[in-house]
């Protein structure tokens, strides 16, 4: 479903993403790990078509993101970092707007909103404006927006950021369930999350893929069998100069 080939992004002389390639098929949940500033968000922004790559190609369901963006974008649901939303809109208004841009009309739109609200437990805040929401609700509103059209491809930048432990558990469960028939990529800093929800892990550091495998495979690289040790062994903290 998602095919990323030799993706490069340069900001001035700095290579934020340096020759990344991978594919994600339906039924796969790919966890995207890496230190802050490793290029996770930049990669996701290129996959979703927000920023054009300096070089390389992104194909979603056979549609090239640069040459044929609209059909590619239709297949994607995207939760950007920090779950942005229009501050002055109500949750319902916001979801309705998202549904409308996704081409859902009338009864189908109503149904889609109802389903997303139920999946993300938003019933209590439906008529509250987004700027009055707590961080957890704001995040779930962003998630609901990404799920509104039941997309084949789901891309989420830190979907559990700012959620409490119960909500984190819910969202992981949701990702896992949805992963059965979608292609999912999500980034996170929480290593248990990867073990709980992912079928595959990619660790990136300084714009390059430094590890790619199932959580079990990666864990096997450490004598104690801990993902954290593997992560720390192959990535450098940003306090260390390249």
């Amino acid at each position: 479903m998602i095919k990323v080939e030799n993706l490069v992004k340069a900001f001035g002389p700095k290579l934020a993403v340096n020759d990344i390639s991978f594919t994600v098929e339906r039924g796969e949940v790919l966890g995207f790990l890496g230190p802050n500033g490793a290029g996770k968000s930049t990669t996701m922004r290129m996959i979703t078509g927000f920023i054009p790559p300096t070089a390389g190609r992104v194909t979603i369901g056979g549609h090239d993101m640069l040459e044929d963006p609209l059909p590619a974008k239709r297949l994607i649901g995207y939760l950007p970092e920090n779950a942005p939303g229009y501050a002055d809109m109500t949750v319902h208004g916001f979801l309705s707007f998202a549904a409308e841009l996704r081409g859902l009309k009338g009864g189908a739109r109503k149904q889609a909103i109802g389903r997303a609200v139920e999946l993300c437990f938003l019933q209590n805040v439906l008529h509250q404006t987004i700027d009055t929401l707590s961080k957890g609700y704001k995040h779930r509103t962003g998630l609901a927006q990404a799920l509104i059209h039941d997309p084949d491809v789901l891309i989420m930048d830190e979907p559990t950021d700012g959620l409490d432990p119960n909500q984190k558990h819910e969202v992981r469960g949701l990702i896992k369930r949805m992963g059965e028939n979608k292609a999912i990529i999500f980034s996170t800093h929480i290593l248990e999350e990867v073990e709980a929800a992912c079928t595959r892990v990619i660790i990136i550091d300084r714009g390059r893929i430094v590890a790619n495998g199932t959580p079990a495979e990666l864990k096997a690289r450490s004598p104690e069998g801990r993902l954290e040790d593997v992560f720390r062994a192959i990535t450098l903290p940003d306090t260390v100069k390249a």
């Binding site: 979703t48 078509g49 059909p71 995207y78 950007p80 942005p84 501050a87 998202a98 841009l101 927006q145």
Partner: peptide
């Protein structure tokens, strides 16, 4: 400022 531009421009909208 709100970051909604990223949302809007990754929708199937030119």
């Amino acid at each position: 400022r709100l970051g909604t531009m990223e949302l809007l421009l990754t929708m199937p909208v030119t």
